[in-house]
Design a protein around this nucleic acid. Structure first.
Lengths: 192, 192
DNA sequence: ACTAGTTGTTAACCACTGGTCAATAAGGAG
DNA sequence: CTCCTTATTGACCAGTGGTTAACAACTAGT
């Protein structure tokens, strides 16, 4: 029966997001609860609802950074010093590495379109794909079919979706990633 | 305070599985609760725990049928009257069609290796893959790399994992399925 | 200095979830 | 008429996301 804590630091969106992000690195979305965040922050879980309308809103706020990180990573690969074919390989490997190194984030970014539709995350995912498609096209000697690029993207997605259950990070799947990337290069390079 | 219902029909494993399967077709694993099954069965949710040790056990019991269905579907494609290349295409399309037409089942079969490890489902998934790999090899004119077959499988998996959010069944993704299947044929057929 | 309004927080509460378990009823066997 | 096994209930546990009345703390106006 004593609302409002004596006079500790006020709770901020920043603090909540940081704590959520911290826990989100270790556990997945469903394992991070409003109460676990509140507990670590030393407040009641109800307080969080003053700053965010629901759990999803917190996590979608976090995802922005990860979409940026993915986009930047792919940009780096495209602008590298290597020859085009190597850079294309790097883009593929880079995508899979990101997915495997940020598994719970990747899940929310590209695998959890359900429930709360959340147009923002959807949009960000589409934007990331557009960037990927452009990168792939720009690194190719010939004009590629859009459908081939899309199939390639889906194949990369499939790798992450599959290996996330068997591997904790990119390092553990390094060889398989490489093999898969080379398979996709082969597929894209195919000429009749 | 009146345990044991007067004398209605006894609850059986069969009944529970049937009800769970029924609900599982409409909703996904997390939306089907022990209580929703019990309610429809007219019993208390505690009663179910007499027949199954937990929720997962019910659903893994259901999955067996779906693994069989998938395996049979692929077998049919392999034994069809068409030429090898068409049959290979049919196998790919058949796999994706199964995934899109049984989305929540597919999720549990191939996408939810987490939490309860459940070796049985794991084993069934591996067996399905082995069957797939053999089918693909048998329909190919040349000796394929195991890694290429695996990459192909992952690419199919990726398609299902991706499109499940945008489409309710195979019919709605028919064209995209076809395009993706042809892309993979191209990739497999590649010769340097 | 007093008052009014706003902002932030708490804790109790809701309706759920999966899971456990003592109590107990029904039925069969001796 | 007992004894035993089997099946079932419903109360209970710990947890979830989310809501809200009450209230403290701060701010501005007079």
């Amino acid at each position: 029966m004593s609302p409002r804590k004596p006079s500790t630091k006020d709770l901020t969106k920043e603090m909540i997001i940081n704590e959520a992000r911290k826990q989100f690195i270790m556990k997945d979305f469903h394992q991070v609860s409003m109460r676990s965040i509140a507990k670590e922050l030393g407040c009641s879980h109800g307080a969080i609802y003053y700053h965010f309308k629901n759990k999803a809103e917190i996590f979608y706020a976090i995802l922005g950074d990860y979409f940026s990180e993915l986009n930047n990573t792919l940009d780096e690969k495209v602008n590298g010093p290597e020859d085009h074919n190597t850079k294309l390989l790097n883009v593929f490997v880079g995508y899979m590495a990101f997915g495997l190194n940020n598994q719970s984030q990747y899940e929310l970014m590209f695998m959890m379109r359900d429930s709360e539709i959340d147009g923002l995350s959807q949009e960000a995912a589409n934007f990331s794909y557009e960037k990927f498609a452009q990168s792939v096209q720009s690194l190719s000697k010939t004009e590629l079919l859009n459908s081939d690029i899309y199939s390639t993207f889906i194949a990369l997605h499939g790798f992450v979706a599959h290996y996330r259950h068997y591997v904790k990070n990119y390092e553990e799947a390094k060889d398989a990633v490489d093999v898969h990337a080379k398979f996709l290069i082969k597929a894209l390079t195919y000429r009749e």
